[in-house]
């Protein structure tokens, strides 16, 4: 949405598109913020159950995914530097690395969720509802919603990056007009930012 003015308006205002992107990021923060409020209240009300349920999650996969996201955040940040230095090849390479890392993140997530399903844990599953305490039901409910919504943002972010990649390739995003790439980067960092909080809150409860 940030690139829309660039075609209809004769002048190009990178500050406006950056501000627009930031404002959009604020709404995303509040969107996840709502979920963090829910999480925080229920953890406050069910501390023991949250701890028990948290131990079911695989810290190793979580840590690997954290590092993947952090690295991808670095590569996309570097890609703007590469673009500004007019190194188109390196820009494209870094963007491809970012997308591949995002894909690896999703594959990991897929296997992680798959294991949970295999153990009979999914939202509203009989095992969850009949054999677990209320706090654990809430934990897994929130786990699926929050990581699911985060994964959705990963997918949106990937599409955003791919669009930017295409534009860099065509040359319409270049050192003089880098807004779209910068905004894709901002969005991707947001995804990273949310994961920075999701990881300890779900995987590191003891």
């Amino acid at each position: 949405m940030e690139n829309v003015t660039q075609h209809s308006e004769p002048h190009y205002d990178p500050e406006a598109s950056k501000l627009g992107m930031w404002l959009f990021i604020f709404t995303e923060l509040l969107l996840f913020g709502g979920l963090f409020i829910v999480y925080s209240i229920y953890r406050f009300l069910n501390p023991v159950a949250f701890q028990l349920a948290g131990e079911e999650l695989n810290v190793v996969i979580g840590a690997i995914n954290t590092i993947i996201l952090l690295v991808s955040s670095m590569t996309i940040a570097m890609s703007t530097t590469a673009l500004q230095q007019k190194n188109k090849k390196l820009t494209l390479f870094l963007l491809i690395v970012t997308v591949v890392l995002a894909l690896v993140f999703l594959v990991n997530k897929y296997f992680e969720w798959g294991t949970k399903f295999h153990h009979g844990i999914w939202p509203g599953s009989p095992h969850l509802i009949n054999d677990m305490s209320k706090g654990e039901i809430l934990f897994f409910g929130l786990y699926f919603v929050m990581t699911g919504l985060h994964a959705l943002h990963i997918i949106i972010g990937m599409i955003f990056i791919l669009v930017a990649l295409k534009r860099v390739q065509k040359g319409t995003v270049n050192a003089d007009r880098p807004s779209l790439l910068e905004n894709a980067g901002l969005y991707w960092h947001l995804v990273d930012l949310i994961w920075i909080f999701l990881f300890p809150l779900f995987y590191l409860i003891h």
Partner: peptide
């Protein structure tokens, strides 16, 4: 700053209706 909060709340109600996540 306020609309996203109700957005996610409505999503939670919808998920509650569809899956029974319990929130």
């Amino acid at each position: 700053l306020a609309t996203p909060v109700v957005g996610i709340t409505l999503v939670l109600v919808a998920l509650e209706r569809i899956f029974g996540i319990g929130v």
